[in-house]
Computed example of a mutant assay.
Amino acid sequence: MSVSFIRRFAAPKKALAVAAVAAATTGMVLSSAPAQAATTSDSSARTVAKQMIPDAAQYDAFSKIVERESGWNVTATNSSSGAYGLVQALPAHKMSSAGSDWKTNASTQIKWGLDYMNSRYGSPTAAWSFWQANGWY
């Protein structure tokens, strides 16, 4: 085995070991909790949305918008505009009208997003049609 071959594989392992030691020294945990334990995970936000939007076509349209806007990340923030959350509300604090926990609660953000889509476009499917035509809603 050549020395360069060994170096190519030893260096990444060493870097990983150094990172693990540094993380342990500073008190960071490298393991994560199960996805179902997180209240703001992608899967739990989708589950909440399905419960709140029983019509399959409306849910599908809502889901397509959220997937493109935030990737189902409850704390997604657009660094240039400040848009925030699942539905990328702008300004973000507008979602407080749906609840004081708007920064972290998927249900609150979904409720606000549905209200927004229904009042501005008539429905999530109409909002999705607009999104497709314009790349935003």
Rank of each mutant, 00 (worst) to 15 (best):
A127E: 01
A89C: 04
A17S: 04
D101Y: 07
P12K: 04
S96E: 11
G135S: 03
L90Y: 10
N73F: 04
Q132H: 02
A38F: 15
F9G: 08
E67R: 12
K14C: 09
W136P: 00
Y116D: 04
D115E: 13
I65Y: 02
S129Q: 08
P91K: 04
R8D: 10
K111R: 14
K111E: 09
A17F: 09
A33Q: 08
S70L: 11
E69D: 02
L86G: 01
V3S: 12
S97Y: 01
W102H: 00
Q51C: 05
A23F: 11
P12Y: 05
T26K: 07
R8I: 14
A11S: 11
A20E: 12
N105F: 00
S123W: 01
Q109E: 02
S80K: 09
S123C: 03
T104Q: 04
T26G: 10
S31C: 10
P91Q: 07
D115A: 14
A57G: 05
W112T: 02
S4V: 14
T39S: 11
S80G: 02
V29L: 12
A61V: 02
W136S: 08
R68F: 01
G71I: 06
P54K: 05
A56K: 15
A127F: 07
V21D: 04
P34F: 14
S32R: 11
S97V: 06
A15P: 05
Q51I: 02
A24N: 07
L90T: 00
G99Q: 06
W102S: 03
S41Y: 12
F130N: 08
D60R: 06
S41D: 09
M1D: 13
W136H: 13
I65T: 05
K64L: 03
N105W: 04
R7Q: 15
S4G: 07
V18I: 14
A133V: 00
G135N: 03
T39L: 14
A92G: 02
D101F: 01
P54M: 06
G85I: 05
A38D: 14
A61P: 01
V87Y: 00
S100M: 00
P34W: 13
S41L: 06
G71M: 01
W72S: 03
S70C: 13
T25C: 06
A92R: 00
Y116T: 00
D55T: 10
A24P: 00
F62N: 03
T77C: 07
L114E: 03
M52N: 00
I53S: 04
A37M: 12
S70N: 10
S100R: 04
G122A: 09
A19Y: 14
S123K: 01
T104P: 01
G85P: 00
K111L: 03
V29I: 09
S80R: 12
V29D: 08
A10W: 09
A49R: 08
P54N: 11
W112G: 03
P124G: 03
F5W: 11
M1F: 11
T77F: 11
N73D: 09
V48P: 06
K13P: 01
P124E: 00
G99R: 09
A20L: 13
R8T: 13
T26H: 06
K94P: 04
W112P: 00
M95V: 12
T40N: 15
A23V: 10
L16V: 06
